[in-house]
Design a protein around this nucleic acid. Structure first.
Length: 735
DNA sequence: TGTCAAAAGATTTTT
DNA sequence: TCTTTTGACA
């Protein structure tokens, strides 16, 4: 009996197929993590591969950590030398060693989206781009998409042709890259782009990593974009030992450049690739899985497959509509309280999933009132909060004074009486001489236009220089402490004495905790090391299964997780699927939403509740929404409770909203206004048969007529008399 | 240079 | 609705 005997045939196939390219199409809950960990274990134990030669790319840092732990349990050694991380952190690690070949310093900083926006604002000002016409965000979006496809500024300009707008973007793109280079900074996309560039320009470096990563595994492959694909194929091109795991039905990041072609064309790029499908689900009950299957079935662009499970039928799905989002949240809070009280679930078995982060607020409020421990994942990244970023900027300035953004962010925090005019003059001086902003500050007394303002700048420079000189004998948390002390940052907040200020102090305390725990866990803790770790953590990485709390997050964040008891909230047309996709003329947008719904449903192991509200406040306006079309795609037979709304109306809708409101009130779950044609399947009864109807009772079929898309059935009911109805709608059962 | 109020913008999802 | 940005004024 070996550990591999517990796998099913398909899984075992995948584990034993170690050499040559392998495409693993793994449905939701089909045990792909098990396959990956066993595969790694097999490589190490049976094939004698050095763990050092194995690379596993996962979607989050947490997933990588988990994988390592599980391999450790199987093999007992070597798991720590497996290279397991996300695409982004992999690239950072490589670039820290070799980026000098591309003209950057190895201590480059990583710009987050806030930083990007600041740079872009500056670029627009410099190029005199009217940001009312070309929004910074839109330009950045265009640049990001270009980078996803490895399009350089020059190429972008050439592709733009005579299009004035695109020419402008090309200009901005070029200038933006120049600015980043000057600041020795890379944005998220650059991490990938520069790594591919590095491999292309330096075959010796590529060769080194090809030798290093003889066995490569990529998880969540359906969400990789073109650059990521290039990166992987470059690395794998020598030994071809590449195993990618994905599920086209769970591709939910197209908006971020994910290229589903990476899955669909895998066999073309690697002609001798083997494909293995995992279709047995081990996670969910039959009812939940069937619901998921019936929803995803409506997508046209997909590889046909149907997951199955040996698990029990399980409970029916719950489906509830409420008057307001308020009541919806109250119900979910109450339901969780009840289930925990009755001992059926723990808090950490429960998750509330929603489409947009904004929806979390209501739940937070209700959970607080109901005394339910909870954790919200996502929203504003911890490290993006103002107070945290301020302090990090100090650390960054000490670490790498080329990071102009960090320097400029903190130069007047706390207030040092340094204004925009002075900063502009320093900036001009820096540009003139081709030196960094900070270096210009150091020479402030030599800048003639500044005059007496240089007196204000000097203490700042001295402060940073002092910290730098102390850096070698201070630990990171001592350094941070010094900054907080010297700047009086916390003192200032304490003086404010507002709830908001208190929350900020808490965040700062948490930052200190994070620094300390970094120093405890890292082998050789350094300032740069800490800053690097911080730049790439996702909120989801902080999720911990040990703590007993309910998790609240977006459907996107939920990918790859599972919970015994799942609530999908805000199941309303216009929310989910979002208004943007329902009004889009590209039907594939809606299909992505449906995949997101599929991801949501398949997170649930035992119990799934879908909720919606008839009226909901959005941006200060009351909206009336119908129950989501996705809910209608779930067969009635799988659902227990449906619409239990009491017809009480708290306030009359405004006149102009009346028609909209009427529509919403008229819509009920499961009353499909356009029933799915099920003609092809035929009917289980014919003329003369006795049938059962859910409402009208027993009757005899008198006539079946071809009604075009559906059959029109005439039935003479014992009690209700003769009725005409559509077959797929009436759901008649033969008795 | 700093403060306050008005105006604009946002809400689709994220490394 | 709530937050962020802008602009006027002290």
């Amino acid at each position: 009996m070996s550990v591999y005997d517990t796998l099913n045939d398909m899984q075992r196939d995948a584990v034993f197929h170690t050499d040559g390219p392998l495409l693993l199409l793994a449905g939701a809950g089909s045990g792909k993590t098990r396959v990956l960990t066993h595969r790694i274990a097999y490589l190490i134990e049976e094939k004698g591969i050095n763990p050092w030669n194995i690379m596993a790319i996962t979607f989050t840092n947490k997933a990588a950590q988990e994988m390592r732990e599980r391999v450790d349990r199987l093999v007992g050694f070597g798991s720590e030398s497996i290279w397991g991380s996300t695409f982004h952190s992999t690239c950072v690690r490589i670039l820290r060693r070799h980026i000098e070949r591309l003209g950057f310093g190895t201590n480059f900083t990583i710009y987050d989206s806030d930083d990007q926006k600041t740079v872009m604002k500056d670029v627009c000002k410099r190029l005199e781009i009217d940001t009312k016409v070309y929004k910074e965000k839109m330009i950045l979006g265009a640049i990001s998409s270009a980078k996803d496809e490895m399009i350089s500024p020059e190429e972008y300009r050439l592709n733009a042709g005579g299009d004035y707008g695109k020419q402008k973007i090309a200009q901005a793109y070029e200038e933006y890259q120049k600015q980043l280079q000057n600041s020795n900074a890379l944005d998220f996309d650059d991490l990938l782009v520069k790594t591919v560039e590095l491999f292309r320009i330096c075959p010796d470096v590529l060769d080194y990593y090809q030798e290093r990563f003889k066995y490569i595994m990529v998880d969540e492959y359906q969400d990789t974009n073109t650059v990521q694909f290039l990166l992987v194929s470059l690395l794998a091109s020598k030994y071809q030992n590449l195993c990618v795991v994905g599920d086209d039905d769970q591709s939910i990041y197209k908006f971020r450049g994910a290229n589903i072609g990476n899955i669909l064309n895998f066999e073309k790029v690697f002609p001798n690739a083997r494909t293995i499908k995992l279709e047995q689900n081990y996670r969910s009950t039959k009812n939940i899985l069937n619901a998921a299957n019936d929803v995803i079935r409506n997508n046209m662009e997909r590889k046909e497959k149907r997951l199955w499970t040996d698990n029990d039928e399980g409970d029916m799905l719950e489906c509830r509509q409420f008057m307001t989002a308020y009541e919806e949240a109250e119900y979910i809070a109450g339901d969780i309280s009840r289930l925990v009280r009755e001992g059926e679930f723990h808090y950490n078995d429960c998750a509330v999933l929603y489409r947009t982060n904004a929806q979390s607020r209501m739940f937070e409020e209700k959970f607080l009132m109901a005394n339910i421990p909870y954790k919200i994942i996502g929203g504003i990244n911890f490290y993006a909060r103002k107070e945290v970023k301020d302090l990090l900027s100090y650390l960054k300035t000490v670490d790498n004074a080329k990071d102009d953004l960090a320097v400029r962010r903190i130069i007047n925090v706390p207030k040092r009486g340094i204004g925009a005019t002075t900063l502009g003059r320093v900036q001009d001086y820096a540009v003139e001489r081709g030196i960094s902003f900070y270096d210009a500050l150091k020479e402030a007394d030599k800048i003639p236009s500044i005059g007496r303002s240089s007196v204000k700048l000097a203490p700042f420079v001295t402060f940073i220089q002092t910290l730098r000189s102390q850096q070698e004998f201070l630990s990171v948390h001592e350094l941070l402490g010094e900054i907080i002390e010297q700047t009086g940052y916390v003192k200032e907040l304490e003086a404010e004495d507002t709830d908001e200020a208190k929350a900020r102090i808490e965040n700062i305390d948490e930052l200190i905790t994070k620094v300390v725990s970094y120093e405890e866990s890292a082998e050789t803790p350094t300032l740069s090391g800490f800053l690097e770790e911080v730049a790439l953590v996702a909120d989801i990485d902080s999720l911990d299964e040990e703590s007993d709390y309910v998790v609240l997050m977006t459907l996107h964040s939920a990918k790859g997780l599972e919970f015994a008891n799942v609530y999908m909230a805000g199941m309303e047309d216009g929310i989910f699927p979002s208004y943007m996709t329902t009004s889009s003329d590209d039907p594939s947008d809606l299909e992505e939403e449906r995949r997101l719904c599929y991801v949501g449903i398949t997170r649930a192991m035992k119990r799934l509740t879908l909720t919606s509200a008839r009226q909901r406040m959005i941006r200060g306006e009351t909206q009336f929404n119908r129950v989501s079309r996705f809910v209608h795609e779930i067969p009635e037979g799988l659902v227990a409770a449906t619409n239990e709304i009491l017809p009480r109306i708290k306030e009359m809708p405004r006149q102009n909203a009346f028609a909209q409101a009427k529509n919403a009130f008229l819509s009920r779950p499961f009353e499909n206004k356009a029933p799915e044609p099920k003609k092809g399947e035929g009917l289980e009864y014919e003329v003369g048969d006795t049938v059962q109807h859910i409402k009208f009772g027993v009757g005899i079929v008198e006539k079946i007529a071809d009604g075009g898309r559906d059959y029109e059935v005439t039935v003479n009911f014992d009690k209700a008399g003769v009725k005409k109805m559509f077959a797929s709608f009436a759901k008649l059962k033969k008795v």
